[in-house]
């Protein structure tokens, strides 16, 4: 199952992250997971939210550049070597991971990780073939 992620361009300037998050707050949107990729010149804020379309719209109204794309959410055994086993599966399938980040919330005994592979469909297939729990958007938003 694919999960929608929104990415926001942040200029490397004081207060921009806060401004983006204030817009989320004002729209009553609860952020389920987030990560920031930072370079010396700009940042990319990536969010998993239950209403990605609404979030994209309100951010664009606030003059942010926003992109929506698919990522994969998986359940990872919350113990040493949990993620290792998953990356091994992807490596064997010759699938490159662009980035990944984790949810704060847990699902039973599993940690939740957001994964971005270059080819999302190939990534999902390899993970499912390796018996990894790939979560649906509903399961993610309920956490």
């Amino acid at each position: 199952m694919k999960l929608k992620q929104i990415s926001i361009f942040l200029e490397n300037k004081k207060g921009r992250l806060w401004k983006a998050l204030s817009i989320m707050k004002d729209a009553g949107i609860n952020i389920r997971a987030l990560s920031i990729a930072d370079t010396s010149e700009f940042g990319i804020l990536r969010l998993i939210v239950p209403e990605p379309e609404t979030a994209k719209r309100v951010l664009e109204e606030g003059n942010f550049v926003v992109k929506m794309n698919d990522v994969i959410a998986i359940g990872v055994p919350d113990k040493s070597g949990g993620l290792d086993g998953i990356l091994e599966i992807l490596n064997k399938a010759d699938i490159n991971v662009e980035y990944l980040y984790a949810f704060v919330a847990k699902r039973g005994e599993q940690a939740i990780v957001v994964l971005r592979t270059e080819d999302i469909d190939a990534g999902i297939k390899a993970l499912e073939d390796g018996n990894v729990t790939v979560l649906s958007p509903d399961e993610v938003y309920k956490l």
Binding site: F9, I44, V65, K67, E98, Y99, R116
Partner: peptide, 18 residues
Amino acid sequence: ETSEKLFSDEVKHVEEAK
């Protein structure tokens, strides 16, 4: 000014655009 067309969720693509 960046635009949706130039922007991406991946750093490398934004740097390529630049």
